[in-house]
């Protein structure tokens, strides 16, 4: 066994372990900061037009809405899937109220009893400009929603330009949503 060979055999495991270590460290620090989510699912609908739908409203909260009404908007709209039974959705409400001062948010109650969803939305003041009920979750499937809360940024004309599956707050709005509004 010559010296070069011995050098290679010593260096390879050390460099390999080093590279793995740096990789794991980056993965774990991104997980802590929220930049990397191992369970995140890339939604293939980003960049595509919104699917067609027509949903009823919630009791006492107006008429619901259709894809045509969403398409006809002249401002970007944040579409937020929520449910009264979903704990992150409860946590997200104050954040949504803050974001709603900057842009309209349209809420879709996912697999929720209409009266429960209406009570939940009105409890501390609704962040939603309009609310509709997806009672059996079928509209959510067309949007590629896998759970609640999930949010979509819809450009005027009805193209989806951003998707997020975390509970929204003003930090996410500033980092992910606001920069995208500038380009519209």
């Amino acid at each position: 066994m010559n010296a070069t060979r011995r050098g290679i055999l010593t260096a390879v495991p050390i460099i390999g372990a080093g590279v793995l270590g740096v990789g794991f460290w980056r993965m774990l620090s991104d997980m802590r900061s929220g930049a990397f989510d191992p369970r995140a699912i890339k939604n293939p609908n980003v960049g595509k037009p919104i699917p067609s739908f027509a949903m009823p409203g919630l009791p006492g909260l107006g008429d619901g809405f259709t894809d045509a009404e969403l398409r006809a908007q002249h401002r970007p709209v944040l579409v937020n899937f929520f449910a009264s039974w979903c704990i992150p959705c409860v946590a997200e409400m104050p954040g949504l109220r803050a974001i709603s001062r900057n842009m309209p948010i349209w809420g879709i109650a996912y697999e929720d009893k209409p009266e429960n969803a209406a009570g939940f939305v009105q409890r501390d003041g609704s962040p939603y400009a309009r609310v509709a009920s997806d009672r059996h979750g079928r509209v959510a499937i067309d949007w590629g929603v896998t759970g609640v809360p999930e949010s979509f940024l819809v450009a005027p004309g009805g193209r989806i330009i951003w998707h997020g599956s975390a509970a929204l707050d003003p930090q996410i709005y500033e980092a992910e949503i606001r920069p995208r509004l500038a380009g519209l």
Partner: peptide, 8 residues
């Protein structure tokens, strides 16, 4: 299915 949820 893949149109809505991707290859995943």
């Amino acid at each position: 299915m893949t149109e809505r949820y991707g290859e995943f």
